[in-house]
Simulated scan of single mutants.
Amino acid sequence: MERLVVKLCALLLVLCIPLAGHAAAPDGTLQVLVLGDSLTAGYGLEPGQSFPSKLEAALKARGVKVTVHNAGVSGDTASGGASRLDWALAGVPGKPDLVILELGANDMLRGVDPAITTRALTAIMDRFSRDGVPVLIAGMKAAPNMGATFVNQFDAIYPALAAKYDAPLYPFFLDGVAGNKALNLPDGLHPTAEGIDVIVTRIVPMVHNLLETRPAGRTVSGAK
């Protein structure tokens, strides 16, 4: 009887201990997480046309064994992204080999105080820094009609964040696409499939290089 009680107690202890993270990908496939808004989610596009899907295809065409996870939520702000980090990470086996942080466009469009956007993005970077996950910051730029003061404060967020965490910066996620009617949906805000192609073509060399040159056990530097 005592032996049975001991076994039951041991079983209960095992069941109560939370799993320490997720199992790593068994075949060595690199894991890239794109944490973003509708520009990541693929708003208005057919399946397979989103930025994560096309980035994965472009990396595979370069011989990289990779899975790119789409953690984009349309309408999300930087604060929204910070609040759902656990959800975003739950779909990635093990720790991501790279995170692409693409948030802030909705903050800009809604005129959110840049200080609030900065705090949210800093919280995200702090989390990945503690977890030892490298981050590529995909920058955003404010529309000129937001006013000079707002534009200057908002545009400074991403270079400052990159400098603080010694993280690589892709200065403007919509580079080559913003303002081009032929590469945007009728709303003028979201890229078409062809617009996504332009974004991927421009950013993939940087992503490829970060994956190829990552040292074993690489971590994102802490705040300076």
Rank of each mutant, 00 (worst) to 15 (best):
L33H: 04
D97L: 00
A61G: 15
P93L: 04
D76K: 03
G72A: 10
N106G: 06
Y43P: 01
T29I: 05
K95Q: 14
L45D: 03
V92L: 05
I17G: 00
K95G: 01
L33G: 03
S83E: 14
L103W: 05
P47F: 13
V68Y: 03
D107V: 11
A82C: 05
L59Q: 07
P18Y: 11
R62H: 08
L89Q: 07
A58C: 12
P114E: 14
G91T: 07
G63P: 04
A25T: 00
K60A: 11
S53Q: 13
L109F: 12
L12E: 09
V32Y: 06
G111C: 08
Y43V: 10
A71Q: 06
H69Q: 11
P52C: 14
L15F: 11
P96G: 04
P93I: 05
D113N: 13
V66M: 04
L35W: 01
Y43K: 11
A82S: 13
A71W: 05
E46L: 15
T29Q: 14
L55P: 02
D107A: 08
G28C: 08
G63R: 06
K60F: 04
G21C: 06
T40N: 00
Q49R: 12
A61F: 04
G36T: 09
M108Y: 02
G81W: 06
A71Y: 01
L109K: 09
P47G: 12
G36S: 07
P18S: 08
A24Y: 00
D76N: 14
T29M: 15
V73N: 01
